[in-house]
Computed example of a mutant assay.
Amino acid sequence: MNTSSNIIVGISIGDINGIGIEVILKTFADKRMLEFCTPVLFGSAKTVSFHKKTLDIQTHIHGINTIDKVVHGKINLLNVWNEELKIDLGTASKELGNYAFKSLDKAVEALKNNKIDLLLTAPINKDTIQSDDFSFPGHTEYLQSHLEGKSLMILLNEELRVGLLTGHIPVSDVASTITPELIEDKVAIMYTSLVEDFGISKPKIAVLGLNPHSGDNGLIGKEEKEIIAPTIKKIRDTGKLVFGPYAADGFFGSKTYEQFDGVLAMYHDQGLAPFKALSFGAGVNFTAGLSKIRTSPDHGTGFDIAGKGIANSDSFKEALFTALKIHKNRAAHIEITKNVLKTK
């Protein structure tokens, strides 16, 4: 594992008709970024050149044909395909969705083989990328199927980390999916991540309720009383600082989240809607719990602004710096714990 500025960051370019390539090019337009890492884009010189010309971005790219030819101090582009693509910025395209998958697939392969140290993923269109090879709701589920560990989606900024108990599933399936075992698993992943990835020795975690007013003692749903609260107590009895369940509206409205190192939401929009209201454009999506590090910006493909040159790269930059910090924290944790004195 690299621990210097030679950390190799693999980058999948996302949906080619979206803003992914734009925010990547804007991020590395500042040459000082190369002092922190060595980026490797997985895509095509022809495809990236099209975006550079259309957007009038002068970021210099160094093309390579094998991952072993990476040059430190340059923005490397590994050619995954050579054919000319029909690019129509701002349009959903099944054909280009296949190329978004090619980029992701090669990047994950390099990650598994330790050719890159961590992975940044630009946004994909979850519909057009679907195929026999990619039949997943999103990046998180795909990565879990290819890497060791159990995943937890965490959206974060400097003040807030929100994990999701259930991810990309219909709201109608949420209640039946919530079990004591699932709560225990996700709390354990978040706890370990807060310790190893964020350097928090004794993390404090809040768990949200499922129903309005956290069920009002069973009047508006029984999940809190019968499943969530007893499981939280069981976990807390082991010594972990886990509290709840909290009613989501009051929890975020009163800024109670400021008292915690992590928040576990019951379902996707319960956690992500308030997070993005508080942090849209500067947040980071981190896949915790896996053997490898992956982050991404907190926005989507941005079809409505693709090709206009106005996409904001702040979230992508934050995703990069977050991944680098987690890489450093994991290395430090390994170093600290490997020589711990063993008691007889």
Results as ranks from 00 to 15, higher is better:
residue 3 T to W: 09
residue 6 N to E: 14
residue 7 I to K: 14
residue 8 I to A: 07
residue 12 S to G: 08
residue 12 S to H: 09
residue 26 K to I: 02
residue 26 K to L: 04
residue 38 T to L: 07
residue 39 P to D: 03
residue 41 L to M: 15
residue 42 F to R: 14
residue 44 S to D: 04
residue 44 S to E: 03
residue 45 A to L: 14
residue 46 K to Q: 13
residue 49 S to T: 10
residue 49 S to F: 09
residue 51 H to F: 06
residue 56 D to F: 10
residue 62 H to D: 05
residue 78 L to A: 09
residue 89 L to Q: 14
residue 92 A to D: 10
residue 94 K to D: 02
residue 98 N to W: 09
residue 101 F to I: 08
residue 107 A to W: 14
residue 107 A to V: 07
residue 111 L to S: 10
residue 111 L to I: 05
residue 116 I to V: 15
residue 120 L to G: 11
residue 124 I to E: 09
residue 125 N to C: 10
residue 137 P to Y: 07
residue 138 G to K: 12
residue 144 Q to T: 03
residue 145 S to K: 08
residue 146 H to S: 08
residue 163 G to P: 03
residue 166 T to P: 03
residue 170 P to Y: 11
residue 173 D to C: 11
residue 179 T to G: 02
residue 183 I to T: 00
residue 187 V to I: 15
residue 191 Y to G: 05
residue 191 Y to S: 10
residue 203 P to I: 00
residue 204 K to P: 01
residue 207 V to I: 13
residue 208 L to S: 01
residue 223 E to S: 02
residue 233 K to V: 02
residue 238 T to P: 11
residue 239 G to M: 09
residue 239 G to F: 07
residue 248 A to M: 05
residue 251 F to S: 00
residue 252 F to W: 07
residue 253 G to K: 11
residue 257 Y to S: 02
residue 272 L to R: 13
residue 272 L to E: 07
residue 272 L to M: 12
residue 273 A to T: 15
residue 275 F to L: 04
residue 282 A to L: 11
residue 288 A to Q: 09
residue 289 G to N: 11
residue 293 I to M: 09
residue 297 P to A: 13
residue 304 D to Y: 06
residue 306 A to W: 12
residue 307 G to V: 07
residue 307 G to N: 10
residue 308 K to Y: 07
residue 310 I to L: 05
residue 314 D to H: 12
residue 324 L to V: 00
residue 334 I to D: 13
residue 336 I to P: 03
residue 337 T to P: 06
residue 342 K to Y: 06
